[in-house]
Design a binder for these strands. Structure first.
Lengths: 120, 120
DNA sequence: TTAATGTATAGAGTATAGTCTATACTTGTA
DNA sequence: TACAAGTATAGACTATACTCTATACATTAA
């Protein structure tokens, strides 16, 4: 598919897709059959990678981190042991984040209850 | 306490504290007894607010959101009903985030296991 | 074939969140 | 009293993550 379709499918703007492509997060390839242009084609892999980027961004990873994540995910870098280390580290980070979220949630809930009971 | 002490206590740089103060997230007050300077004094409230800022930032709130949070927290804005609404909304947002984190964590764990079992 | 629309590339502009520098005044210690 | 260190203010600079503009070429429908 061309960039326009990828954009519509994922909800990511064409500009942003190109920005991600410049950063090496996804990659389109020119169609060998078409010699007249250098339009890039994006496959399901690009779509999937974009999906992961969106998800990872939502939970607070930077694009630099996501790049590393994708490289490990798709085995573009590091030995298997390094990849496993990378994933375990990320899992730990996420666990810490979940913990922090739970804490601040409890804090907010406590304040909320106080407010509801008119104790403020 | 003066800005230097506040910085040391919280681990937030003097520059950043001033930046937050400009945004209205915290506030120091000049000492009425000292007429020679306009050095600002920061109380425990400022320290506490900085603590909340740090926590909230860690879980992904923007400074604009944190400002609203602090205003509700300390009752500087809105009716009680509005405050409760605000808190409930934030709690919901956090629940969604925790859910997203759990999902991506499961995803990472699955890939990790595959890697460990040599299925990649 | 022409006009509208789509694509690629490069580079400028924007928003957020700092971070640093310059200048000027104040305080505290030798 | 001199001087190092602290403080305030304003403004410049940086990094991240876009977002937009300009230019040029390609494609497609009328």
């Amino acid at each position: 598919m061309l960039i326009n379709e990828l954009s519509k499918k994922t909800g990511v703007s064409i500009h942003t897709i190109r920005y991600y492509e410049n950063l090496g997060l996804i990659q389109g390839v020119p169609d060998e059959n078409v010699k007249t242009n250098n339009y890039k084609n994006y496959g399901e892999d690009a779509e999937e990678r974009l999906g992961i980027i969106i998800e990872a961004k939502e939970v607070g990873f930077t694009l630099a981190e996501i790049r590393k994540l994708l490289d490990s995910w798709y085995g573009n870098s590091g030995t298997r042991t390094e990849q496993i280390e990378m994933f375990k580290l990320k899992i730990q980070e996420i666990e810490v984040k979940i913990c922090q979220f739970t804490q601040i949630k409890n804090r907010l809930e406590a304040v909320c209850k106080k407010l509801e009971n008119g104790q403020c």
